[in-house]
Computed example of a mutant assay.
Amino acid sequence: MNSFTGRSILVTGASSGLGAATVRRFAAGGGKVYAASRNAELLAEVAASCADLPGEVAFGSHDITSPADCRAAVAAAVAAYGRLDVVVNNAGRHDFRITTETTDEEWAHDIALNLSGAFYVAQAAIPHLLEVGGNIVNVASVAGLMGEAYSAAYTAAKHGIVGLTKALAVEYLNAPLRVNCVCPGGMDTAQVQTISVPEGADWELIMRVAAKRGMMTADSVAAVIAFLASDDAASVHGSIQAVDQGHLAG
């Protein structure tokens, strides 16, 4: 277990799934976590599940599709613990849409949630991270490394997260800041249970991205995020880590 004692960590999209698992992982390592999401009720449940862990969890309702809310989440994390050491840009959602039927509003929302939010959070957090030699872990997807059917906006956004990670890594190559990216494959989370597929979609095309070993647990991906955020990964900067049970290797 990586140690985060004395470290302050902001996790977006923290109310369920990978975000909640990541909050618990950092709290188990003694970290002081600020959990951000739109759903304050679910955030309270996540915080309660960490009550017996060595770390601390504070939380607040923030809509990552709003640039102002992104800045507010960073400010709240700093206010809660007096510093900011780690940012995990996890907020996102995968909605399947037929490209020709995607509305302007759906495209804009998908890009805002899955890409722009990470940019605005990073933009606000970087001055604080530079003060302490901190780091950012962006969460993309295997969709950031390959195409996914009926997912034009999501795939474009996740490719954007990969590009954002590389751009920031180069920009801060000579500064005390690390930036890395995790690209998970399919995880057994609540979101998987609520995803709907457009009428008439080709299921075989959708299943092309499924790993032969099946779904992963969110905890297994959270462990990789924690490693990248830890001192054990001090030499890891600008990396794009696929966590997909070998799917992209084949």
Rank of each mutant, 00 (worst) to 15 (best):
D188E: 15
T194R: 15
V162N: 08
I206T: 03
A149W: 00
G134I: 01
G147E: 09
A153M: 02
L168M: 13
Y154R: 04
A210G: 09
L145P: 05
I225N: 00
A201M: 05
K158E: 06
V224C: 15
T194N: 09
R208S: 07
L168A: 03
G160C: 11
H159W: 15
G186M: 14
I195N: 07
A218Y: 07
A169M: 08
C183T: 00
D219F: 12
F227T: 13
T165S: 15
I206E: 03
Q193V: 07
I195T: 10
I206K: 02
I225H: 03
A140T: 02
S196M: 09
P184E: 04
L145F: 12
A149L: 01
C183P: 03
V197A: 02
A140Y: 05
A153N: 04
L173I: 01
G133L: 12
M215R: 06
A226Y: 10
A169E: 13
L228V: 15
G133F: 13
P198Y: 10
A211C: 15
G133Y: 12
Q193H: 11
A210D: 14
R208F: 09
Y172E: 01
T189M: 08
A175F: 03
V192A: 07
S196N: 08
M187Y: 07
S196H: 11
Y154F: 11
